[in-house]
Amino acid sequence: MKLINLLPRDGEAYYHGNILETATADLYLDQCISELSWEHDRAFMFGKEIVTQRKMAWYADKPVSYTYSGYTRTALMWPDFLRRIKQRVESSSGDIFNSCLCNFYSSGDEGMGWHSDGEKELVEDGAIGSLTLGSARKFSFKHKITGERLSLSLEHGSLLIMKGRTQKNWLHSLPKTKKSTDPRVNLTFRQMRF
């Protein structure tokens, strides 16, 4: 099946749909929630420390450091089940990843504002594979210059790949919603410069 680029210009985003059967996605969701080393994310904004409701964990091939939002984190080594998920994402996308930034949203009351993933540690124009486990949520793109917007629903067990000039030209967000009270885990597989 040929995938269609969702972005009209200045980047590439491909929605693969569900790459995991429901029972497998359910199992991985439970394992992620119970076995990953979650901690509340922290960021420096306007000279103040912000502690988010959302929790995060970071895993990689090596215990390297990664700095974003004014904080440096050190990667943990892959648990076996997360390595298996990574292999599934790689076989579905054709891209190779060496790290994963994991996000845990306990309900629709937690989200992520407009941002792009442009940290210097990321491979320039490299792929980011976003696997959704749990509650389906709206995911939005906004062009940095034109303000053009588009959104899609990321379903349980589905994969979105962003690559090329996407991070330079587009912002993305996970809006908060009252429609979902169920948890969501988002695994963002990345290509880091080690």
Rank of each mutant, 00 (worst) to 15 (best):
S34W: 00
S180C: 13
Q191I: 14
K62Q: 15
L133R: 06
L174C: 04
K163T: 03
N5F: 04
F104W: 10
H156L: 11
I85P: 02
R42H: 07
E119S: 14
P8V: 08
K55T: 05
T72Q: 15
T67W: 00
T166I: 05
P175S: 13
Y66E: 07
G113S: 06
N5L: 05
R190Q: 09
F81N: 08
K86W: 00
W114V: 01
H115T: 05
P8W: 01
F194K: 02
G157Y: 14
S69P: 00
T181W: 06
G47H: 01
E155Q: 10
G118Q: 11
K86S: 08
L101Q: 05
Y71E: 01
T188D: 02
F139E: 06
E155L: 13
R165T: 12
I4L: 09
Y66I: 03
D26T: 14
S99N: 04
K138G: 00
I50Q: 02
Q87W: 10
K55R: 13
L27D: 14
S135V: 03
E110N: 06
S34A: 15
A136C: 04
I85N: 03
W38S: 05
F194N: 13
R193Q: 14
Y14M: 12
S116D: 08
A75Q: 07
E49M: 14
S106L: 10
A57M: 05
E148C: 07
W38K: 03
T74E: 15
V51R: 06
S107V: 03
H172N: 09
R83W: 10
D26F: 11
D26N: 15
W78F: 15
L152E: 11
V185C: 07
E90K: 06
H156E: 10
I50V: 14
G17S: 02
A75N: 08
K48C: 01
T166E: 02
S69N: 06
N186R: 09
V64P: 00
F139A: 07
L159C: 09
H40F: 13
S93C: 08
E124D: 11
L122T: 05
T72C: 14
M192E: 03
E148N: 10
T146M: 12
F97K: 10
C100F: 00
N18H: 07
K138H: 09
A43Y: 04
K144N: 10
R42S: 04
V51D: 00
A60N: 09
R190V: 09
M1W: 07
D30L: 09
S99I: 02
K142W: 13
G113Y: 04
S180N: 13
F189P: 00
A75S: 12
R83K: 11
Y59N: 11
L160R: 08
